[in-house]
Computed example of a mutant assay.
Amino acid sequence: MTLPYSILDLAPIPQGATVAEALAHSVDLARHAEALGYHRYWLAEHHNSTGIASAATAVLIGHVAGQTSTIRVGAGGIMLPNHAPLQVAEAFGTLATLYPGRIDLGLGRAPGTDGLTAQALRRGVLNADRFPEDVIELLGFLGDASADQPVKAVPGQGTHVPVWMLGSSLFGAQLAAHLGLPYAFASHFAPDMLAEAIEIYRARFRPGVTAAPRFMLAVNLFAAETDAAAHLLRSSMIHGFVNLRRGQAGPLPPPCADLTTVASSAEIAMAERALRVVAVGSPATVEARLRALIAQYRPDELILTGHIFDHAARKRSFEIGAQAMARIARG
C-alpha cells in the first residue's frame, strides 16, 4: 500500500545548544527528509519554552520552504486561539503564494502555552471558546471571495491552503467530521482517546472541505542500529517530558542510561504511558512496530516525531523510519 509519511518538528533546543543551532538543524533535517521521500515537514507553535525554537511558526515555515524544493511544509499546528483568523489567512496565503502547492495549515485549539503567556499574546484563553467560529472564519478567508464580502485576506483569498484539524480529544474529531476536514490526532503525547476519536471522526464525517475522511496518526520514532541504542536516544524525551510535567520545561536533556537517577518510578511510568504510541528500536524492530500501528489504526497518513539530543542521531533515526516505511509500502 502507499501510505504517505511525514515529520513533525518542534525545533528542539538541546542543552548547551543555541536557538540558531536548533533552527539550522531543522532546515538540515527538512532537506534530509525531502531526499528520503517524506511527504510533509510540519512545525508546531509553542511559546515561552526555552527548549523549543518554533514559536514564530509561519516565519520558520517560510524559511524551511525556501531552503527545500518539493516537500510540503506546514504547521502542525497553529494554535488558533492565539491569533486572529484574518492574520493567519494572510500569513499562510502569503506562504502559499510564494511556495504554491507546498503549504499546509494545521489548526489546534489549545493555546500551546501557559495562561500568563496567553495574555502576553493579547488573545487570552477565552478565545478557545470561539474556536469553531474562528475555524469557519479562517476557511472563508482562504476560500473564494463572495461578491458582498466586506473584508478579504490579501494574500490569502482564493489560495485554498489545505487546512487540517488537530486534536487530542473528541472535540477536534467531532469538529473535523462536521466541517469535512482532514484530521490529525496528537497520539504522540496524548493517546488516551485515540481509538474513540478515530471512530467518531470516521462515523460522523460528512463531505465538506474534503470529500472523504483523511486521518493522520502521529508516532514517536526512535530508531538506531540496536534496540539498546534506540532506547538510550528515547531517554532524552522521557526525561524532558517529566520535566515538563514538573513545571520545569527547558532545553532537551542528554540521553540518560538510568532514568531512575533523574526521575521517580512513578514519573517515568507517567511519561511512558503518555508517549506510548512509539516505534523504538533497531530497523527490524521499528518496522514491525510501525506495521502493527498501521494495522491497528488504519491511518491514511503517518507523521513521525522524536526529540533526539544529537542531530546526527536524529537524522539517522528518520532515515531508518523512511526505509521502514518504504519496505511497508512494497508489501
Rank of each mutant, 00 (worst) to 15 (best):
A147C: 14
R314A: 08
R276N: 13
S264I: 09
A279D: 01
M193V: 14
L121M: 07
I198W: 00
R298V: 10
A292Q: 13
Q296W: 07
V88P: 00
F309K: 00
G240T: 03
V278M: 13
A211Q: 15
F205G: 01
R40C: 08
P182A: 03
E137Q: 14
A329I: 11
M1W: 06
Q119I: 14
D129Y: 06
I308K: 00
T18Y: 05
M79Q: 13
P299R: 01
M1G: 12
A295E: 11
H188T: 08
E287Q: 09
G321H: 01
L233F: 14
G93K: 03
G247H: 08
I78G: 02
L43T: 02
P213Q: 03
R289I: 06
F189P: 04
P132Y: 02
E301D: 10
V154M: 15
I238R: 01
N127L: 13
A22G: 04
I52V: 11
A197Q: 02
V219H: 00
D134H: 08
G172L: 04
P100V: 11
A96V: 11
F318V: 03
Y41K: 04
T285N: 06
S54H: 02
Y41I: 07
T261W: 13
T226F: 03
R102I: 11
R330T: 10
I200W: 05
E90K: 05
A230G: 03
A284P: 05
R234V: 07
S6G: 09
G331H: 12
